[in-house]
Write a protein that binds this DNA or RNA. Structure first.
Length: 518
RNA sequence: GAGGGGGUAGCUCAGUUGGUUAGAGCCCCGGACUCAUAAUCCGGUCGUCGUGGGUUCGAGCCCCACCCUCCUCACCA
């Protein structure tokens, strides 16, 4: 079976990451962790996009070289953010790395040799003050908005990619494979665009030099998007000799199963990227999934405006796992969703502290109090085990389809059901009657077993917390690591062995101090 | 401007091919319980379903008009 290969966008390093970037990356991490627990071989790629005019300008502003600017930001901001969020990526690619640049050049040369690249003229409004080409949308009455003076229509010689030649094939691809671009609203927009007029793409720039040189015309650099998109393939060995290590890796992992993207960059991934691959005769990715925006106060988070919230602002209060949980639980993954501190606090308290964390606390306390801290004999509750089986089927189907909300929902429904079981069976009352010890033990075993399953199911979403819960059940000593637990087997009842030593630890999700009311 | 979503309880949202008293979670109120992070469980209050017309025996779901809001309309990561 082909390994499951998922990518996030490579993020543009003109600033530090905000929660919008983290949203995408966490989603990718949860999905790949889930696939790993299904027993699949997984490759999870993220990275940074470091070429282009904006990075160059940002570096100039700070009086450093573009390369140093990128190095600093990657090491001080991007990588630390991902490790703080417990992101388990298998690779981190930077577009300034030789492994990327060399392969991009080889790929481009290949396209040229195959006749897909030609020399053409790019013509557009050019502002002498800015020394750059403008987009029609950037102009007001033909004037540059920064210099308030008319632009000249200039043209420069650029290398063009015959994008238009692939349009019919791409349309056919999406019509025959609806799953290749999701959600449906995104696919419709892409198809609407494709059925309009699509012209060829200028893939080189000569007005600045921070980029990968066009191999046969080194006065020009490769257009940043053309460069950036290729990261998904260069990271796994694109263009390497099939017998080499890189070539074997490419054969093993390509094509990617899922490209996760924000809807702002959908078109690059759903139109340009497949055309590039078709031109090279390579298989297309299984799915491009465009998720929605995180809205803050009704407006979209912006990297250029200062509405960006750093993940740390949230994790300092709620913790990393609550951060990972919240966005996937609260927002349907293809839709926009508003972030608010109030909603986050409400969900944290109700769902994580009260429903999930407290369930663990009540079980551990009772096992300690009534069973001497040891898991009692294996028993089975048909009610709970059947509910669990149903939960696993639902959650697995939903999460594999990137419907995180439905998946987490069904897991949390099961959690609520277990709380109901505890209240209904009233083990604290049964414990007062010495003739009912067997019944008491059965009840407590069933709760423990249900929580064992909850820990496994929640592990991809909240790894650190679930590992703590796992070891407090004593399961690490008897069942192995939580990461090794298979989704396909999690519903098999009776796995937690009798005699496991339960350890009471810190509360999983401490109640929030009511200090931050304002 | 053109095309496409959406406007349903205080909040976030579900609502199949039109059909009896419009649902869920959260919040709030009441009860039960005490193993637990004053947590849990049960019950309850709350809605002119954006506005105005129309079709129909019957419309949140269909049609028309209008208002509001979000998105797309290419090379801006």
């Amino acid at each position: 079976m082909k390994p499951f290969y998922l990518t996030t966008p490579i993020y543009y390093v003109n600033d530090a990451p905000h929660i919008g970037h983290a949203y995408t990356t966490v989603a990718g991490d949860v999905l790949t962790r889930w696939h790993r627990q299904r027993g699949e071989d997984v490759f999870f790629l993220t990275g940074t996009d470091e070429h282009g005019e904006k990075v160059m300008r940002a570096a100039e502003k700070n009086n450093v070289s573009p390369q140093k600017w990128c190095d600093d930001l990657v090491e001080s901001a991007w990588k630390p953010t991902w490790s703080a969020l417990n992101i388990a990526n298998d690779d981190f690619i930077r577009t300034t790395e030789p492994r990327h640049e060399e392969r991009v050049q080889k790929f481009l040369t290949g396209l040229k040799d195959a006749g897909h690249i030609y020399l053409g003229k790019y013509e557009g409004p050019y502002c002498v003050g800015c020394e750059e080409f403008k987009l029609p949308g950037d102009l007001i009455d033909g004037n540059c908005t920064t210099h308030s003076r008319p632009c000249e229509i200039l043209s420069e010689e650029n290398w063009f990619f015959k994008l238009s030649a692939f349009v019919p094939a791409i349309i056919k691809h999406y019509e025959e494979n609806p799953a290749a671009c999701e959600p449906a609203s995104a696919r419709n927009e892409v198809l609407a665009f494709l059925k309009g007029e699509v012209s060829d793409l200028s893939i080189s720039r000569s007005t600045f030099d921070w980029g990968i040189p066009v191999p046969w015309d080194t006065k020009q650099v490769i257009y940043v998007w053309f460069d950036a998109l290729l990261n998904y393939a260069t990271a796994v060995g694109l263009t390497d000799d099939p017998t080499s290590e890189g070539g074997k890796k490419f054969a093993k992992y390509w094509p990617a199963d899922v490209h996760l993207v924000g809807k702002d960059i959908l078109r690059f991934h759903a139109v340009i990227w497949p055309a590039m691959l078709m031109a090279a005769g390579l298989p297309l990715p299984g799915k491009v999934f465009a998720h929605g925006w995180l809205l803050v106060g009704g407006e979209k988070m912006s990297k250029s405006k200062l509405t960006g919230i750093a993940p740390k602002d949230i994790t300092d209060t709620f913790g990393v796992d609550a951060f990972r949980y919240y966005f996937l639980r609260a927002i349907p993954f293809g839709s926009d969703g508003s972030f608010s501190w109030e909603d986050m606090a409400a969900r944290y308290t109700s769902e994580l502290a009260n429903d999930f964390g407290n369930l663990a606390s009540r079980l551990i306390a009772m096992i300690e109090k009534y069973c001497g801290g040891v898991i009692p004999a294996v028993a089975q509750s048909p009610e709970l085990s059947e509910a669990l089986a149903k939960t696993v089927v639902e959650a697995d189907a939903a999460i594999v389809a990137l419907d995180f909300q439905t998946g987490i929902n069904s897991i949390m429904d099961f959690c609520k059901k277990v709380n109901g079981y505890v209240t209904l069976t009233e083990p604290w009352k049964v414990a007062k009657d010495e003739s009912r010890t067997v019944e008491l033990n059965e009840i407590l075993y069933n709760i423990a077993e249900a929580i064992r399953a909850l820990a496994v199911l929640m592990h991809p979403i909240m790894p650190a917390t679930c590992e703590v819960l796992w070891s407090s059940l004593g399961a690490d000593k008897t069942l192995g690591t939580i990461a090794a637990q298979k989704i396909s087997e999690v519903a098999t009842w009776g796995q937690l062995p009798a005699g496991s030593q339960v350890v009471k630890g810190a509360v999983l999700f401490p109640r929030l101090e009511s200090a931050n009311e304002a």
